[in-house]
Amino acid sequence: MSNKKIKVITGKIGTDGHYRGIEAVTRALRDAGMEVVYLGAGRRVEEVIKALSQEDADVLGLSFLCGGHIQAMKRLMTRIKEENLEHVLILVGGIIYDDEIPEMKELGVAEVFLPGTPLAHMVDYVSREVEKGKKNKE
């Protein structure tokens, strides 16, 4: 088991200023001892890709509260594949309709967290899945 801190990138892509949820998640992950780079709202796909490569991140957490998530994730996942960043654990949270969750997972999103999910649950999920990923690599 490596002692390297889990590194997470969080933020919001595109035209959605509802930042309250993602900031709460960012803080919870930081409080749990992870290294979190918060990109803020209104980021471009390319900015996210750049951050993922430069920071050598384990996890990407994005939040969507006013639509456009399927389209944004399609654009992002295409670029993630092109840049060989598929090892990053991709997580999405926010206002996502139930029917869209399977579609999100097909795109390569590992998990979708809906409103009301306890922060502790997300923190546990991230620690567990990153460890699992590292073991699989070894």
Binding site: G14, T15, R44, G67, G68, H69, Q71, A72
Partner: peptide
């Protein structure tokens, strides 16, 4: 960037 957001 507007894709998927129209009228939502």
């Amino acid at each position: 960037s507007a894709d998927g957001h129209l009228g939502v």
